[in-house]
Amino acid sequence: MIKQIARYPWGRIIATVVLAACGVIFMLPFLWMLSSSFKIEADVFKYPIEWIPKRWNALNNYKEVWFGSHPFYIYYWNSIKVSIGTMLLSVLVSSMAAYGFSKIRFRAGRWLFLVVLATFMVPQQAILVPQFILYRSIGLFDSHIGLIFLGSFSVLGTFMLRQFFMGVHHEYIESAKIDGAGHFRIFWQIAAPLVKPAIATYAILRFIWTWNDYLNPFIFLRSDPLFTIQLAMQKFTSLNGEFYSLIMAAAVSAIVPLLIIFVIGQKSVIEGIAIGGVKG
């Protein structure tokens, strides 16, 4: 017994030290990005690396990124619009379907659920071409609303939320029905509030996935003023090829706001990923 108590803290200390070392190595690319974004161009590739810049140029670098010839604030606004739009629509569509498939006993429900389940197996990458042709012919190509639709009919979200709606007791719903409430009222006033944490988790995940999505904007947007932050990042890089301090300032700008959202919503994001084992 004594031996165990004595041994255990050592194991923990070693684990902490090993992890801290791994963590620092893991973070080096981020640290390098951050410190380079503050430097003047001539110091970016100066060795030994100045982790804390001696000559600061942060203000100019970030001003160029945010208000220069390709101002990031426009693309930020685009990303915010698309991400919030997708998040809201997707949460609505998925939670309604999840409620329908778990709490309404309708005859077609079972096989309709199978149909939706089957579409889960189709990778979007395999249907890009028909989607593109469809979007061109119905006028959704090169529009934010088109992008929002692409991300809003998530089978994954429906599954995830269905699990939680199934946990809502049928008695609640039956007694509300006896009191004369229809399914829409039951959904809004009873069922949805009961699974609120799950809905919030899914909403954050959907926001992050949409914000980071590259494929859809890349294929379905063409005009520069509509670009999301991911496309802007790529464009900025190709335009400023040799100005690495500027490129790093753009990279920091593209990453940091989302990191802040993640750190704030950390618990629900990590739990959501762990519970659903989900991946965008």
Binding site: V93, F106, G109
Partner: peptide
């Protein structure tokens, strides 16, 4: 009701 709820999806 069931059809209505799952219709958008």
């Amino acid at each position: 009701a069931g059809w209505l709820f799952v219709a958008p999806m």
